[in-house]
């Protein structure tokens, strides 16, 4: 029983070495263009979903690359797969396939399975 009125806070730091990188590796293997993202945010700016809900493919890309899978695992369901982001991406990332492959990966590794 904590009788102090406060408790230890969980660290905000991304603990890269402790994180699970299986999702990132799975996507990169199936859709190598996933690695090319430079986080410019073009995809997120044009995104149908992102205009109305908390959804950013830029953020999802970065977080998966860092092994921070929890938020992307839940967010990724929101994408409507319209494909506008592919048109925008300056690096030629097949963003639509990244989303589809990410869904596969999250399911495979049991992270917020669809």
């Amino acid at each position: 029983m904590n009788r102090f009125g406060y408790s230890l806070s969980k660290a905000r730091v991304i603990d890269y070495d402790a994180n699970n990188h299986a999702v990132a590796e799975y996507i990169a293997e199936k859709e190598p263009s996933f690695r090319l993202c430079i986080a410019c945010g073009g995809c997120a700016a044009t995104c149908t979903t992102g205009n109305f809900t908390e959804f950013s493919l830029r953020e999802i890309n970065i977080l998966i690359h860092r092994g921070e899978n929890r938020k992307p695992g839940s967010d990724i369901r929101k994408c409507m797969l319209c494909g506008k982001c592919i048109l925008v991406c300056p690096r030629g990332v097949n963003t639509r396939n990244v989303v589809i492959t990410a869904r596969e990966a999250f399911k495979k590794f049991g992270i917020n399975a669809l």
Binding site: F4, G5, Y6, L8, S9
Partner: peptide, 14 residues
């Protein structure tokens, strides 16, 4: 401030 003390002690714990 007691309510803030948690993140204060977290630094020491780290």
């Amino acid at each position: 401030v007691q309510a803030n003390r948690g993140y204060s002690v977290s630094n020491t714990a780290k």
